[in-house]
């Protein structure tokens, strides 16, 4: 039953990286699983079409087909759970990092997953754009009630020019302090580009 353990190792790999980001997509085991499922299906089909056997062994044949089918269903369950968990993590990353994923994450994705992520992003921004009577509302912001209009922040990395809503640009440089409107730096704080300096 080595192939079943191989298949479950896919999931163990994911769950042991729980606190981590998405690990590399394990193409090797996934395609192995699919080949096994095809093989099991074909063997079952052959068994089912084989009418030459007598009634005693056809009883056993029925059991064999059933067991093989349940193995096939189990592998299917593993594969679905694997992909489902990856997409769920990817979804979570969208809310943490925004639509631009850091390269550490995006290099572990398959083309299909990247395609899915792009679709998820556009669905989400579509939805947020339609909120607030069509004027749009960013659901990732304003998670705590604002206490003042301007806050003091320290820049943690060289980010370059950042345009504010009134049209002025600020050049964000590492280790510099800025006094910025709260509404416009919340996202930058979430992304870890600047941090709020406590008074």
């Amino acid at each position: 039953m080595n192939f079943i353990d191989r298949c479950v190792s896919l999931l163990k790999e994911l769950s042991s990286s729980k606190k981590d980001f998405l690990p590399v997509y394990n193409n090797e085991i996934v395609s192995e699983c699919i080949t096994t499922m095809k093989r099991l299906f074909e063997e079952n089909q052959k068994e089912a079409l084989d009418t030459s056997t007598d009634s005693a062994s056809s009883q056993d044949g029925f059991i064999v087909v059933k067991i093989r089918h349940s193995i096939l269903l189990f592998i299917k369950r593993c594969l679905i759970a694997y992909h489902h968990e990856r997409l769920n993590r990817l979804k979570k990353l969208r809310w943490e990092f925004g639509s631009e994923l850091p390269t550490e994450v995006s290099c572990n994705l398959t083309p299909k997953e990247i395609e899915w992520f792009a679709k998820y992003c556009s669905n989400l921004s579509d939805y947020m754009g339609r909120l607030n009577e069509g004027r749009g509302f960013d659901l990732t912001l304003n998670r705590t009630a604002p206490k003042r209009i301007f806050i003091q922040v320290r820049c943690l990395q060289d980010h370059g020019d950042h345009e504010l809503e009134d049209g002025t640009t600020v050049c964000l440089q590492k280790d510099n302090l800025y006094y910025l409107p709260f509404s416009q730096c919340e996202k930058l704080i979430h992304q870890g580009i600047i941090e709020q300096v406590s008074d």
Partner: peptide, 11 residues
């Protein structure tokens, strides 16, 4: 105080 997102900090 607003904080950066959990995963951003971890990364």
């Amino acid at each position: 105080k607003i904080l950066s997102n959990e995963l951003v900090t971890k990364l």
